[in-house]
Computed example of a mutant assay.
Amino acid sequence: MRLLVVLFAFILSATPALADWQYTKWGMSPDAVFSASGGKAIKLDQKGIKDHSIASLQLAGLYLAEYQTGPYRFTCTFLFRDEKLGGISLNLSDISKSYQLEDDLMGKYGQPIEVNQKYKIKKWRDEASNNLVQISITPGLFTSVLYLPISQPHSSGL
C-alpha cells in the first residue's frame, strides 16, 4: 500500500500544475518543441508523419521522443495543426500495465467525463493544466494516452 501511495505521489508530481504538457505549451512551433525537449525529440520523415498522425483530428505527428514517469515508459508523439502544437500522444511501451495506468489516471483525475465501453476509451477534463485527457486501451494490442488542449472561448462569434 505504501508503494502505491509513493507511486501515485510521483505521478501527480510528474505533471507541472500550470504547464500544458510537461515542457511544452499548446501552440508552440515544431522548432520550439524540439528546443524544449533538449534536443531529444526526433523529427519524423514523411512515412513517420503519416504513421503518427491523427487524421480525424487534423493533427500531424512531426516529432517523437521517449518519455517515462514512474513505472510507465512511453513513445511520445508531438502532434501539430497549422505548425502549432495541438496534441500529445503517449503510447505505452509495456501494455501489461494498461489497466494499472488507467487506475492511476482515475486516481489523478477522478471519474471520467465520458466513457466509451465499446472502444475502451475514458476521457477527463483537467482545467488546471488546460488539458483534455483520454486513455484508449485495445487489450493485447496497444494503450495510448492522448492530451489535447481545452478549447479556449473566443471573444466573438457563437
Rank of each mutant, 00 (worst) to 15 (best):
2 R>S: 03
4 L>P: 01
4 L>S: 07
5 V>C: 02
5 V>R: 01
7 L>G: 04
9 A>N: 01
9 A>D: 02
9 A>P: 04
10 F>D: 00
11 I>V: 08
13 S>I: 03
14 A>C: 12
15 T>R: 07
16 P>D: 13
17 A>M: 11
17 A>K: 10
17 A>H: 11
20 D>R: 00
21 W>Q: 03
22 Q>K: 08
26 W>Y: 03
26 W>C: 15
28 M>F: 08
30 P>T: 10
32 A>R: 00
32 A>E: 05
33 V>M: 09
35 S>E: 14
38 G>Y: 13
47 K>F: 02
48 G>P: 10
50 K>Q: 12
52 H>Y: 08
52 H>A: 07
52 H>I: 04
53 S>K: 04
53 S>Q: 09
53 S>P: 13
54 I>S: 12
54 I>T: 10
55 A>G: 12
56 S>Y: 14
61 G>M: 02
61 G>Y: 03
63 Y>A: 03
63 Y>L: 09
65 A>W: 09
65 A>I: 10
66 E>M: 04
67 Y>I: 02
68 Q>I: 08
68 Q>E: 15
68 Q>W: 04
69 T>K: 10
70 G>I: 07
72 Y>C: 06
73 R>M: 13
74 F>D: 06
74 F>Q: 03
76 C>W: 02
77 T>M: 02
77 T>F: 00
77 T>K: 02
79 L>H: 05
79 L>W: 03
80 F>G: 07
81 R>S: 12
82 D>I: 06
83 E>D: 09
83 E>P: 14
83 E>F: 11
84 K>R: 04
85 L>H: 01
85 L>M: 09
86 G>I: 12
86 G>F: 03
87 G>C: 06
87 G>S: 07
88 I>W: 02
89 S>K: 04
89 S>L: 05
90 L>S: 07
91 N>W: 00
92 L>M: 00
92 L>Q: 00
94 D>L: 01
94 D>S: 01
94 D>F: 01
95 I>L: 00
95 I>F: 03
96 S>P: 10
97 K>S: 06
99 Y>F: 08
99 Y>A: 06
101 L>G: 09
102 E>T: 04
102 E>I: 08
103 D>F: 13
103 D>W: 06
106 M>L: 13
106 M>R: 01
107 G>M: 08
107 G>L: 14
107 G>A: 08
108 K>T: 15
108 K>I: 15
109 Y>Q: 10
112 P>K: 05
114 E>V: 07
115 V>Q: 12
115 V>T: 14
116 N>M: 04
116 N>T: 06
117 Q>D: 15
117 Q>C: 05
120 K>H: 15
120 K>W: 15
124 W>D: 14
128 A>W: 13
129 S>P: 15
129 S>I: 15
129 S>C: 14
132 L>M: 12
133 V>A: 11
133 V>M: 12
135 I>F: 01
135 I>T: 09
136 S>T: 13
136 S>F: 02
137 I>P: 00
138 T>I: 04
139 P>M: 01
142 F>W: 01
142 F>H: 05
142 F>M: 02
142 F>G: 04
143 T>E: 00
143 T>S: 00
147 Y>F: 13
149 P>E: 12
150 I>Q: 04
151 S>E: 14
151 S>N: 13
151 S>Y: 06
153 P>G: 00
154 H>T: 01
155 S>V: 03
156 S>G: 07
157 G>E: 14
157 G>Q: 12
157 G>W: 05
